[in-house]
Nucleic acid binder design. Structure first.
Lengths: 332, 332
DNA sequence: CTCGTTCGTGGAATCGTTTGCTCCCACTGA
DNA sequence: TCAGTGGGAGCAAACGATTCCACGAACGAG
């Protein structure tokens, strides 16, 4: 049995309301009473019942985080930052996983709405999601939907992709295959767009068969790499638009006996720890995941505390940086 | 404003209790009333208030998961499995991160107790943790404490480590350095113990200077590798007791220009995706993380549903397997 | 001495749901 | 016609915490 205010009150011979005030540091409680109450609470191992508190005060001190996948390095890292920030400010965090499935996303949003979350960090899967129930602040992270009135934080996808392709162009590559995930995600769109901008500026085309849409998985990375390798004329470089895709591509390359960067250059978007130690160390575009998580948390927290006078939704883009390692070189 | 039972009741001209019963599928509601109530609820976008429900029914439908670190591959993977299993059975999951810090662990357990979790999956950091408040079932995952009466699920640490070292012995290694994390964790103990068993059986010693205790981080992996490399006589093989440690070790090896496995063999405990594509592909002991997560979830769920007639705590150990790749070879 | 103020405290309503109990009414069988 | 039965619905009491209001005592000022 977990202790309640009532039991402390009985034990101390005071009213429940007095106990509540004593424990919450309300000023109008005599020092003697407060001390006694606090001591008794400690002795009984009192822990406030969050359900009751949430019900009465109409505030759950909880925020929701909705993302596609916990295993993905990018999301795991962001989530860790979010968790820490929210905890520090006294908010609990409840997690929901969508697996990029709109119906799962809908269910998740309903669950969170039931849980009375006071705010939400969302990596949207549908372009038009709906949060049933009360209006709470939402921050879209990494991807954005067509929803208006929500804050958006993401890395500079377009510029990043452009920078990656410019790097390849500077090395002398002219036939560059691009492996990307789901076509409908804003990140995919923007990365492809950035790549195209760079190619356009160099007067080069991006033929449809060099643009390999699929899913954001290791398996697709491998399959697409094999497809790219089979293309004629063969591309001299491959741009894998996420670390998952790069992992698959690298694996396929090793299986096929493709020597990187001699036979073909490979560059990735995203930069998990292990890129530095793989074979060969991968040139990649490091996304500012720590910053993205941090800013998402700060944005949501400032909306929650109501400080944010700004009624306008903000859209923050954070720059990443290109890390040139050994998987890119001039074409043979 | 989010709709409540009261509003639906008003709208339909029935009592709150009737609405509640209609929506919960209670039999004694006429089909006509039920239909009307359900329709109104849908129209108003009704979502039950979980706080109120938890308060009244004294059951939160929530379980807690306490782990050291979300970024660690092993825990992330287990958590993903847990999340899926719990969600499937209608339980919410609240996450707490301890960073292997006992005081953080204490706070986390208090938070979860406040949140009225009905059960707990815990990767213990202290040998004697305490869950304040009500008695709820707890499953210890991966590590175990000295707590009695809790279920424990873990991989066969000892046998795994023994198998790893036996592999090295079979290749002809006699001087094997072991890089491990925090000395007080049961996993560390058991892995070291397994390694020692294998060495004992071969009549070989494990000198103290070959046993490098530290922390479970990439940084320590690197530092310990450098220390191992500097030992005289030099070890011919290094066993890194986690993937984090292996990452650091590998990185240090590459920096030092140590060629693996020519100059030295490296083998790791744990098997993240990328071990297969790194330089060189790492021989490792694959922990059954999927099974561990699954069994932890099942164990807790069966305790929660009360089916488990067994009052005795169970202790499940799951075997992993050695994956021989290219980072181990006979000593020069 | 009395009136107004302040301080500490208790009482009670409230949040949204669930659930035991009661009540009404229609229907059945004698 | 009437007692018995049972389905359908309402009333009200919880759950634990917060908070507004009121009340009594103490006290200083006029």
């Amino acid at each position: 049995m977990v202790a309640s205010l009532k039991q402390i009150a009985r034990e101390c011979g005071v009213a429940i309301s007095t106990v509540s005030r004593a424990l919450n540091g309300h000023p109008s409680v005599s020092p003697a009473t407060r001390e006694q109450v606090v001591a008794t609470a400690a002795r009984l191992g009192y822990r406030p019942n969050t359900a009751a508190r949430a019900l009465r005060s109409r505030s759950s001190s909880t925020v929701g985080v909705v993302l596609p996948d916990m295993l993905n390095n990018f999301y795991a890292a962001c989530t860790a930052v979010l968790q820490e920030q929210f905890e520090q400010r006294g908010y609990g965090m409840v997690l929901a996983v969508t697996r990029n499935d709109p119906s799962r996303e809908r269910e998740a949003l309903q669950r969170l709405s039931s849980a009375q979350v006071e705010g939400l960090v969302l990596v949207p899967t549908s372009r038009r999601w709906e949060l049933p129930g009360a209006q709470v602040p939402v921050v879209e992270m990494n991807r954005h939907s067509s929803r208006s009135g929500v804050d958006v934080v993401q890395s500079e996808e377009r510029d990043g992709a452009r920078e990656v392709v410019e790097h390849l162009l500077a090395l002398g590559h002219e036939r560059i295959a691009v492996i990307v995930g789901e076509q409908q995600f804003s990140t995919t769109l923007e990365r492809v767009d950035g790549a195209r901008q760079a190619l356009d500026a160099a007067g080069l085309p991006l033929p449809a068969e060099y643009l390999l849409y699929g899913r954001h998985t290791r398996a697709w990375g491998a399959e697409a790499f094999r497809a790219a390798w089979a293309l004629r004329p063969r591309p001299t470089a491959v741009f894998a638009a996420s670390s998952e895709l790069a992992l698959g591509a690298l694996h396929a390359a090793q299986r096929l006996g493709v020597s990187i960067p001699r036979d073909l250059s490979l560059v990735a978007f995203g930069d998990p720890d292990w890129f530095e130690v793989c074979q060969p160390p991968l040139t990649s575009f490091e996304q500012p995941l720590h910053e993205v998580g941090m800013i998402a948390a700060q944005l949501l927290l400032s909306r929650l505390s109501g400080e944010q006078a700004a009624p306008r939704a903000s859209r923050v883009r954070v720059r990443g940086r290109l890390l040139v390692r050994e998987s890119t070189a001039a074409p043979a």
